[in-house]
Design a protein around this nucleic acid. Structure first.
Lengths: 245, 245
DNA sequence: CCAAAAGTGTTGTAAATACACCCATGC
DNA sequence: GCATGGGTGTATTTACAACACTTTTGG
């Protein structure tokens, strides 16, 4: 059972797990027990852990992943970010113990974390408050609790802002990928098109990609090369800023 | 007197007030009463206000400034970010009421805010815990409490990261300034030199500067032009990213 | 006249862009 | 053969960096 005294009160963590599937950015959402409303995976901070390790722990509980890209991006602290009527009805749904309910009714600020992941590597599990979890395209989100839609929006803005300092390719694409899919990733994130030939030349010039073979597509055209990242070179590049897109 | 029940517990705000003086970046620090140790201006969040307005209010209490550049940049939540021995000795210095002392001894996370200001427009005031305040060059800081040096470091990193999205010139330089001082600002922040002629050409091409006359320098050389920003054009540019430095 | 620093111009190189061409594949 | 999409080459334009030249000012 959840013992509130082990945790910092008034502070939560919400994580935006972002993936790239079917040429779309998708986020993982949990369906609240008994209600047709969704939430970001989140949790609370133990008294003796840092917020960063709390975020890591929470994510591991949901995804079993140990080493993933995870980064704090913003703290949300509007006093009415959690609609009281909605909160009450949600607490009723889960039949919350009065002690816990009272604890949850305090004002809460939440620290937003961004995680970049591959769906294929994750078997996501619901938590104590939710009954299942699914990936949603970010431009087709269901009804979300509280300010969680705003949190996703801010996460997306952060990705665009830090795009030259994020290992998008390494975290979001499969190990082996085509140049086209890399291009589509950047086109989707930035919402603009690139010239195919020039994109390829830029990427190869960065000197972080290596060919691993060709994709047997069965399509009526030349089969494209597959690439993978040279991880060392790529992380060094990302640290200094790709500065190329 | 400070009534702890009005405030969220376990959460504070610390602001890095950054200015540009004598070709150096300087931050405002407050000297703790009776101790030779300094802190960032900070405060706590009232139960009914957002963290952003709390940051604004706290800054106004210190500087009397109403409209200034203020932006959240990171939340610090290491459980041992506040050294207990140091905290106790600091509480003794200010003769803290036992109620307040107890409240302050809880684990605290702090939300870091960055503010870009002109020293000339500010008459900074110490708060209830401090006896005076001064500007310090960021590469010559005094002893700081807790993790405040780390907070300043992160603020600086944030400035470098977002440099194309921050109105550095408008917030840090006097209304009328020379091209040289604008260049020195960017050189100081980024820690690298630019070619004088090329810098001037780039800046003028951005189409956000207008000449307002010349500086009567009394120096034995040509007197430089003075410039000011076209604020509308400049804010539009900053929003999209200057992308030019 | 000279030194110092500001303003402007020139030139060579590098990068970004647009687009053309060829290649492999399945029908 | 042809449509489709992948890979590569080229020409043009644009940007960048280095540096030279000119101007103003005080001594």
């Amino acid at each position: 059972m959840f013992d509130t005294t082990n945790y910092l009160s008034g502070i939560s963590i919400d994580s935006v797990l972002m993936s790239f599937q079917n040429n779309r950015l998708e986020v993982l959402l949990l369906k609240w027990k008994g209600a047709n409303i969704w939430t970001l995976p989140g949790g609370f901070i133990k008294r003796d852990e840092s917020i960063n390790s709390a975020a890591k722990r929470i994510l591991k509980e949901r995804t079993s992943l140990d080493y993933i890209f995870l980064e704090q991006f913003y703290t949300f602290g509007d006093p009415d970010r959690r609609n009281k009527v909605q909160l009450d009805s949600l607490l009723r749904m889960i039949d919350a113990d009065e002690n816990i309910a009272c604890w949850l009714r305090q004002p809460f600020i939440t620290i937003g974390y961004l995680s970049l992941v591959r769906q294929t590597e994750i078997e996501a599990l619901p938590d104590q408050f939710s009954e299942n979890c699914t990936w949603f395209s970010i431009d087709n989100l269901p009804e979300l609790i509280f300010d969680h839609e705003q949190i996703i929006g801010k996460a997306l803005a952060q990705i665009k802002l830090k795009i030259n300092y994020l290992p998008l390719g390494l975290t979001l694409l499969p190990q082996n990928f085509t140049m086209k899919s890399l291009q589509q990733l950047y086109e989707t994130v930035l919402g603009k098109q690139f010239d195919r030939a020039n994109f390829q030349k830029k990427m190869l010039k960065l000197n972080v990609l290596q060919r691993t073979g060709t994709q047997q597509s069965g399509m009526s055209h030349k089969s494209p090369f597959l690439y993978k990242f040279n991880k060392k070179k790529y992380s060094r590049l990302v640290k200094e800023g790709i500065g190329y897109i």
